[in-house]
Each structure stands twice: as structure tokens, then as C-alpha cells.
């Protein structure tokens, strides 16, 4: 599945702003793993996502997906394997185009794009079926411009656009953080449903500790560019927020501190 070997990356090396954002990261995901990632602000979570997606080149180490080394592939080629939903609801869709056109662009993700119509009658039917699973009525608005949708609707559409072609890896980087609580809850439950139904191998960054505990079969905690805590299965399901805070204190010798982290 996904394998990260000895990944390190340092920003602004040799300047006063030098920052070791990832420090010898090793991580192996099994097929169908759903991993939640927590960690204080600046821990390197987004950097890790960017290294996997190909948006950033690590200084050292390898990224291997389905046995294939990824580092020599440009970002656009890697995204045939890696699907992403961004934190910003504006980032995942094209506002001046319609819902069906956005879906058509996403549908070509792991196929060759040709000079044939992107939205056909047959595809329309399929898009409609897919939109129905979101349960927010988008199936009746196929020809509406995406710019007219609310942030939550856009994020739901982004989630669908990223997942319905079943990438090898799904990366979610605080994809509910920009939404109000009700919409965030909706997107969270949609995410849970999509991942459960499709069995996608998923890495989800969240700053909500309770959510990190509730979702997925494995949890990793990052700090200062390192993975400092990694629990899975049975052990994870028994974990509480107190346990997490204790673990952090034990490992780092200091209190976990991040004003953004939602404790529960």
C-alpha cells in the first residue's frame, strides 16, 4: 500500500528561518487502513500530506504506493493514485463550471483525457446516482454553477469528486476545519460513510481529538516533524482524550498545547 521510508524535509536550510518540518518519518499503511493524524500546530502534518501527494519534494527518503516508487512522478501523475480534499472549500472545485462538469473533470482522474464529450447522457445518470449518496439534494442541481454552492456543499462535492474514482490513497487535511459546526459534522459523517463503503486507504488530519478517536482504525500523533505516538485496533478503540494528553506529556515531558485543538 503506502510506504514512507525515512522521509526528511527542512525548509529554508542554512538561514535563520531553518525549520525541520519532517524528521525521519517512517510509516506503512495497510490496504483499507483509516488513519487519523493529530498534532499541534506546525507539527508537520500538512507537510507530510504534501510529500505524499507530490506537492513537496522531500530532501531524503522514499514514497512508495502499491509497490511503485513515487518520487520521480510529477504531482499531476501522482494524483492518479492519490486523492485529496483540501481544507479550503474553494480549493477542490471549479466555481465557474457546473456540478456535472466538475464531476466530469474528476471522473477523468485515472483515465486518459480525450477529445470526446466530458458530460454524456450515460455519465449524467451515473453522476446523479453518486450525488444522491451525499443526501443534500445536489442530484437535482447538476447544471448549477459550483460557485453558487455553500462551503459545506462544495466540500461534500469535493469529497465525492475525490473518492468516486477510488484513488489508492485518500488524503484529508483538516477538510472540515473551515466549516461551521453543523456542516463540519455533516462532512465528517459523509467522510465516515464514504470511507466505510469504499474501503479506501485513508489518512485524515484533524485538530479535533474526539474525532480522531472516533474515526478510523489507527491514530498517529505528530510533533516537531516526528511521529511520536502510534496506536491501532483494539488499543485505539479504548483510548480517551486523557490518555492522549498523558501520552504526549510522558513522551515530550511537557504539556500538550495548541489553542486550536478541540478536546472533545
Amino acid at each position: 500500500m503506502l510506504k514512507l521510508n525515512n522521509i526528511s524535509i527542512t525548509f529554508n536550510e542554512g538561514t535563520p528561518d531553518e525549520k525541520k518540518a519532517l524528521d525521519n518519518i517512517n510509516l506503512e499503511l495497510e490496504q483499507g487502513d483509516f488513519i487519523t493524524v493529530i498534532g499541534s500546530n506546525g507539527a508537520g502534518k500538512s507537510t507530510l500530506m504534501n510529500v505524499i501527494s507530490g506537492n513537496l519534494m522531500p530532501d531524503l527518503g522514499d514514497v512508495v504506493i502499491d509497490g511503485e516508487p513515487m518520487l520521480h512522478l510529477p504531482e499531476y501523475k501522482r494524483s492518479a493514485f492519490v486523492g485529496r480534499v483540501f481544507q479550503d472549500p474553494m480549493a477542490g472545485t471549479s466555481p465557474s463550471m457546473t456540478i456535472e462538469e466538475n464531476l466530469a473533470i474528476a471522473y477523468s482522474r485515472n483515465k486518459k483525457r480525450r477529445l470526446r464529450l466530458g458530460v454524456t447522457k450515460q455519465r449524467k445518470g451515473m453522476f446523479k446516482e453518486q450525488l444522491k449518496t451525499l443526501n443534500i439534494g445536489l442530484e437535482n442541481r447538476l447544471t448549477a454553477k459550483v460557485g453558487l454552492l455553500s462551503g459545506g456543499e462544495r466540500q461534500a462535492l469535493s469529497l465525492l469528486m475525490t473518492t468516486f474514482t477510488e484513488p489508492s490513497i485518500l488524503l484529508l487535511d483538516e477538510h472540515t476545519a473551515a466549516l461551521d459546526p453543523a456542516r463540519a459534522a455533516l462532512i465528517t459523517s459523509l467522510t465516515e460513510e464514504v470511507v466505510r463503503n469504499s474501503g479506501l486507504t485513508t489518512l485524515m488530519v484533524t485538530h479535533n481529538m474526539q474525532q480522531a478517536l472516533d474515526l478510523g482504525n489507527r491514530l498517529i500523533m505528530m510533533d516537531k516533524g516526528q511521529i511520536i505516538f502510534d496506536v491501532r485496533g483494539e488499543e485505539k478503540s479504548r483510548l480517551t482524550i486523557e490518555d492522549l494528553l498523558h501520552a504526549f506529556k510522558r513522551i515530550r515531558g511537557i504539556q500538550f498545547e495548541d489553542d486550536r485543538v478541540v478536546l472533545g
Partner: peptide, 23 residues
């Protein structure tokens, strides 16, 4: 309106998205 054309139109709107959808 073709697959290529749709990706082209999205570029003017959102390059990041187009790249993340493997174009």
C-alpha cells in the same frame, strides 16, 4: 466540452484542483 476542454476551462479557475485531479 470535451474531457480535455473541461480540464482546460478549470485551469483558469483553479489550477491546484486540476493538478490534484491528475491533469
Amino acid at each position: 466540452k470535451t474531457e480535455v476542454g473541461l480540464a482546460l476551462r478549470a485551469i483558469g479557475d483553479n489550477k491546484k484542483m486540476v493538478r490534484s485531479l491528475s491533469a
